[in-house]
């Protein structure tokens, strides 16, 4: 169990997750990189800013 650095949501790393994998925070949708498994910790992955063009 760990926390999303952006919004603080608790995140359970599913079994079989590997370091370097990108997962998505279910609450704030930000992309996170798994930096360690024991203890589990996540960092903000580089973001691609979508342009809505509105």
């Amino acid at each position: 169990m760990t926390e999303c650095p952006e919004c603080g949501a608790t995140i359970n790393l599913p079994p079989g997750t590997e370091v370097g994998e990108i997962i998505t925070c279910p609450d704030c949708g930000v992309e996170l990189e798994v930096v360690s498994l024991n203890p589990p910790s996540l960092e903000l992955a580089p973001q691609v800013e979508e342009d809505w063009g509105e």
């Binding site: 919004c7 704030c28 973001q47």
Partner: peptide, 21 residues
């Protein structure tokens, strides 16, 4: 996020919708 989760985290009819993508 902490404030709104504290008040509404357990509410059946409130959803927090602030997404990045």
């Amino acid at each position: 996020w902490k404030i709104y989760r504290e008040d509404y985290g357990a509410e059946p009819f409130i959803r927090l919708v602030s997404a990045k993508q």
